[in-house]
Amino acid sequence: MLIPSQALRITAPLDEETISGLHAGDEVLVNGVVFGARDAVHIKLAELIRTGAKLPFDITGQIIYYVGPTPGRSEHDVGSAGPTTSSRMDFCTPLLISRGLKGMIGKGSRSREVTEAIVKYKAVYLGAVGGIGALLGEKIVHAEIVAYGELGPEALWKFTVKDFPVVVINDVYGGDWYKEVKAVVSEQ
């Protein structure tokens, strides 16, 4: 995995054709724009949707990366930036998917509601390696805060990423790579 010559390259925002071509276990390099958001922003997004207010960004086709980076050398740079645990965002993810969100990058398993929404609305969950933030931070070539700067590391970010390495965990066909790999060792 994570070998540039062997991986598939995709560019965000995502279209349905790209998503349909992704299968659990595929090694993928993400390019383009991804939005950085974690716990506090998800609580705010859920509230905006509940009250019928406008979201601070157009969510159609976008990828959200669950991350709270360390400060970079400038305001358009980040330091360490690896994935946080995705399941804490499960409460809000089906709602965001139904509003057009197409991809999520994080670590750890998702709830049944999330994996069902992934199949129903054709989205994809991508797993990044947790705990390698120094390396992954180098794949973010530009960063800016879109909203909620007062939340500090929990702000809503817009990142431009170059060859950001992930593995497809949950695909539109109901595949779940975290479950599949566990079965491999128990069969041996």
């Binding site: 995995m1 670590k107 797993g127 390696v129 790999v181 566990k182 079965a183 060792v185 128990s186």
Partner: peptide
């Protein structure tokens, strides 16, 4: 023997 492996990727 649980099969989780590095990063949970087996």
């Amino acid at each position: 023997c649980l099969g989780i492996g590095p990063a949970g990727l087996g």
